[in-house]
């Protein structure tokens, strides 16, 4: 039988969300993992890149009961103590988006920043 989650030294997690919000379950899975890791008092950062930047768009309309609204979950990340919520500059530019149109203010980072984040994280998980 698996042991119940124990208190270990907090690890740092970098979650890279690269999938569009509703094309697959990947976006939800990334956010679920971020929230769970934060609930277990781990140090969690999430960066939205590639098609994942579309998860940040304001005005997502989901039929309640059919699927959870990804934008709303993102606005809860800070509340649940996900330390850093970031977006990849080049991906924002490539999709011709304006961070002012995001569900909330997020930290904008470059490819070089992400390289350093990956190198510095204990766990990197890509969705």
């Amino acid at each position: 039988m698996p042991s119940s989650p124990q208190t270990h030294t907090a690890h740092s997690y970098l979650i890279i969300a690269r999938s569009s919000p509703y094309g697959s379950h990947q976006a939800r899975a990334a956010l679920d993992l971020a929230l769970t890791a934060a609930a277990f008092e781990q140090k969690v950062s999430i960066v939205f890149m590639d098609a994942g930047v579309m998860q940040l768009l304001k005005g997502q309309q989901t039929d309640a009961g059919e699927m959870k609204n990804i934008g709303k979950i993102i606005t809860a990340l800070k509340l649940y103590e996900v330390n850093r919520v970031m977006v990849h500059q080049e991906s924002v530019d490539k999709h011709d988006l304006d961070p002012a149109g995001f569900v909330e203010a997020v930290e904008v980072v470059t490819s070089d920043d992400i390289k350093r984040l990956i190198a510095g994280a204990d766990q990197v998980m890509v969705f």
Partner: peptide, 14 residues
């Protein structure tokens, strides 16, 4: 066995 996502966080710690 069936268990929660916490088991993944626990595994990462170990």
């Amino acid at each position: 066995s069936v268990s929660g996502l916490g088991q993944l966080i626990d595994a990462c710690g170990q």
